[in-house]
């Protein structure tokens, strides 16, 4: 596929953030995690299941006029560990970030253990420690490995 084809699918942005190499099918979860639902007025472009040499199929998310910080993008590592982040100013990529696994994520996931206190009507956010191959509830110790996106509390 030529660059022109790619541009037709998802056009270049002037200023903002391009999240590339997102695991195929996870683009909407990426937006949910970032709290971008269109209500803020940002222009958002999404390419889903675009052919990729590295991933086979990938998603691409472009958010105009918003620069994401490292801490904002790190939580994406849980559902899109290969994601790359390009900060764009005046059509030029001025910064490239890679997602890094955070030590802990707060308020993002719902514990799958229905009997966990974080699912009761208590004034606390869910809290998960990131372990080798998944995340672990900071309250009840339940481990989530393969299906983290299914437990997003923001989607």
């Amino acid at each position: 596929m030529s660059d022109t084809d790619k541009q037709l699918r998802v056009s270049k942005i002037r200023n903002g953030t391009v999240i590339d190499h997102v695991t195929g099918g996870q683009a909407l979860n990426v937006l949910a995690i970032l709290g971008i639902d269109g209500a803020g007025g940002e222009s958002v472009s999404i390419g889903m299941n675009v052919p990729s040499d590295r991933l086979g199929r990938k998603d691409v998310v472009k958010v105009e006029d918003r620069e994401l910080s490292q801490s904002e993008v790190d939580v994406l590592s849980l559902i899109a560990p290969e994601a790359t982040i390009n900060i764009v100013r005046d059509y030029e990529v001025v910064e490239k970030l890679r997602v890094e696994r955070p030590e802990r994520v707060t308020g993002l996931l719902t514990c799958p253990n229905r009997n966990c206190i974080s699912n009761a009507n208590e004034p606390v956010d869910s809290r998960f420690d990131v372990v080798d191959d998944g995340v672990r509830c900071g309250y009840c110790g339940t481990i989530v490995r393969d299906d983290i996106a299914d437990h997003l509390s923001v989607s």
């Binding site: 253990n113 009997n115 966990c116 206190i117 009761a120 509830c137 309250y139 009840c140 110790g141 339940t142």
Partner: peptide, 9 residues
């Protein structure tokens, strides 16, 4: 308490 993690919280 009957909920897991109650004491921690």
């Amino acid at each position: 308490h009957p909920s897991e993690g109650a004491a921690t919280m």
